[in-house]
Design a protein around this nucleic acid. Sequence first.
DNA 1: TCAAAAGTGTTCGCTATACACCCATGG
DNA 2: CCATGGGTGTATAGCGAACACTTTTGA
Lengths: 233, 233
Amino acid sequence: MENKEELKYHYKYPHPSVTTDCVIFGFDGTKLNVLLIERGIEPFKGRWALPGGFLRMDETGLAGAKRELMEETGFKDAYIKQFHTYTDPQRDPRERVITIAYYALVRLSEVRGGDDAARAEWFALDQIPTLAFDHDRILRDATAELRKQIHFEPIGFELLPEKFTMSQLQHLYEVILGVKFDRRNFSSKMLKLGLLTELEERVPLVNKKVAFLYRFNHKSYAELKEKGFRLEF
Amino acid sequence: MENKEELKYHYKYPHPSVTTDCVIFGFDGTKLNVLLIERGIEPFKGRWALPGGFLRMDETGLAGAKRELMEETGFKDAYIKQFHTYTDPQRDPRERVITIAYYALVRLSEVRGGDDAARAEWFALDQIPTLAFDHDRILRDATAELRKQIHFEPIGFELLPEKFTMSQLQHLYEVILGVKFDRRNFSSKMLKLGLLTELEERVPLVNKKVAFLYRFNHKSYAELKEKGFRLEF
DNA sequence: TCAAAAGTGTTCGCTATACACCCATGG
DNA sequence: CCATGGGTGTATAGCGAACACTTTTGA
């Protein structure tokens, strides 16, 4: 799959370039964050952009997006989902570039720096600078998709550490959905779903009280999914 | 955008071809149908396939899908939605082809024959032959998307004539979702949403009874959507 | 002593669901 | 007279939403 300097691929009709872009969400306990890359080259040199790159000829879109994710965060098996393909002929000033967009959910606490030399930084969702290309739009769409998807799949857990308290979980849902829940109702609803395992372990809070710790129960989720269920919030 | 015989587009890296495929759903009053095209050329010559074609360099994916829809059904403004992009490097035996897939909902009663010389036919969803390429998979995914989407948007009305009876609407929902509803509950739930306008007109049934006719009320839907609402079925 | 965060249970109202009878017609 | 299809209303159970008090401790 390597290439010479000369232009070696010839087509009768023009072919667009195809890239994958990856919206990587992380939750810091307070806010939803997104990983952005500072562009080192024109166009939009110096502007922030979503991690992404050209799709290789022998890899699927998913593999390309996972490669990006790996390069930037070191994560290999995070939740990742294709959500839209952007095809505006003018979206890249150089040439026609179609991008297949994915979003990924990672545990912020477990992220290590990427292999990549490029400058990468986490931004809170409400403090995003103006992005390169049409990435503002892509990011908005990704956020909307995430909100929609959380009604069908318990993807929130992908953003939390393995062990978490009920209020951490509630904060996450509140941040993603932009609403407030009653503590008691949220807790009982969550527990009733049967997707949480309560751990023996407790965690000390700032005020020396302890809070229960829970873990997401993948097994009962798999069983529930078999039967088909709805996650209502 | 015209071209000579020689190969005039040169790239340093290989570029995939990009096509759009369009899953066109229609409802005949009993079953969900899909429009298929019989392939006239290799590969898969003689096999049925989804309508689709190469994306032109100056059109968006949506425009390409709409062009396909127009050519096959004469419809210009049907409901149409991008749902997934297929990127398996082996999905086309000739060369690498990425396809952006859309589904469209049309009123079967209003479809006129397409401009296209190709042989096109409607197939009931439960009588689909083996399709060319990975179109079986694409069709399965489109059906799943449709089922999912109907929980959020009243897209069912796109498949019915402008005026319809409550039982037509119910049959449609039952076919799409694969469940049975109680007549009385379905009706009262639907009416409570406030999206239907009851018409003066009645329609005579086989047995000379008359049934109420309704029309989808786009205006109250727009208002409801403003406030945000959920369509539960 | 005051603010912050967590644990705990009950009540009320709404809605989903289940269900039965009447009527008109065509066969 | 029976089968078909449509119209209509009620009763019950379960769920979502609202809500208050206690405890511990750090400031």
